[in-house]
Design a protein around this nucleic acid. Structure first.
Lengths: 181, 181
DNA sequence: TGAATTCTATATCACTCTGATATATATGTC
DNA sequence: GACATATATATCAGAGTGATATAGAATTCA
């Protein structure tokens, strides 16, 4: 066990929705999954190759092309995905470079620290706007998504929004404290 | 630029507080930095070797030992740390396996999803307790930490607490929704 | 006192993941 | 027609993870 290729599960989950090319998988990550998941080509293509050899995915019929390959999930792949969904999720390693920097900034001039916090806050405000926009699009049914799945996407977006709010509140609180000390 | 060894900065930051062995660095990560940063031996030791060759750290005097080496930061290391502290922080890649699993769980029985959320909530409740305990210890001044640095550790802990609260609130909200749909 | 267990300390390795770069066609725009 | 952007695949060095191995020091506890 131990070291496992998590991209594999992201790919299985995406192909379980609809057959896709490596490029489509990347786009899905950057759009729908952005905020809590990321993939990059350097990992997608080798993983697809491995999964094809393993029989978890297959080349989708009628789409075979020299320069464009669309993959679909197999029965074996579906079983693999199901097993993973039912497994307990171990906690992942975290690395927030911003928080690390902040912790080591006690000797820095206060203005610098406040500037850091302001720009961090701005990033999270922009994220919030993005999430709120995505939530609106989802509620107005712009895309063709099943009601069930839309509910889950909504839950994930709600998480992003609540986390963002907490982060912005913390930024304000911490800036305030920096100013009065 | 691009791919940079971030462990290096974590190590510089820790050695800037006090000279440490590789083992001490790991302990500091697991205790003080836990929750927003992690290090592992497989990266610490090679990085220390590289940093020693680069002249960013040196072997702390009087502590040379066959089986135990304590490192200290050099002037060059301090400059490197300072430069990093003043740099803008690019956003890091995120990967939450839990959120990925949740998003792909729209075909799962509701009980499974609720169980998932309950156990996720429990983890965050335990984290909250840990942070609150650390905050108490800090306020009662158990360790020998400067007032300045204590303020920064407190800010970091506050972040963990606010994030935790938001997560727990989201878990409750989402469990509720799963039950009434 | 001796045995078992845990803590301190360093090191290595296979594998995962990241970000940059390269290449080439297709489509859209001005 | 020229230029830019989107689609599509591929490779690679380097960063980071987690398991495992080794061994002496300290602690527990019977």
């Amino acid at each position: 066990m131990a070291l496992k290729n998590k991209s594999m599960y992201a790919i299985l989950g995406i192909l379980n929705i609809s057959p896709s090319t490596g490029y489509d998988i990347k786009k899905y990550s950057d759009n729908v999954l952005s905020g809590f998941w990321n993939e990059n080509f350097g990992h997608i293509y080798p993983t697809l190759k491995m999964m094809l050899e393993d029989g978890m995915i297959e080349i989708a019929s009628g789409e075979i092309n020299e320069k464009k390959v669309r993959y679909g999930i197999t029965e074996k792949g579906k079983r693999e995905l199901e097993t993973w969904l039912l497994e307990d999720t171990m906690q992942q390693p975290v690395r927030s470079e911003f928080m690390l920097k902040l912790l080591f900034s006690s000797n820095q001039p206060k203005e610098n620290v406040i500037r850091m916090l302001e720009s961090y806050k701005e990033i999270h405000e922009k994220n919030m706007e993005k999430y709120l926009g995505m939530l609106k699009d989802l509620e107005h049914g712009i895309q063709e998504i099943s009601k069930e799945r839309a509910g889950f996407i909504k839950a994930v977006l709600r998480r992003g929004i609540l986390s963002g709010e907490a982060t912005i509140r913390w930024c304000n609180e911490t800036i305030e404290e920096m100013q009065h000390s």
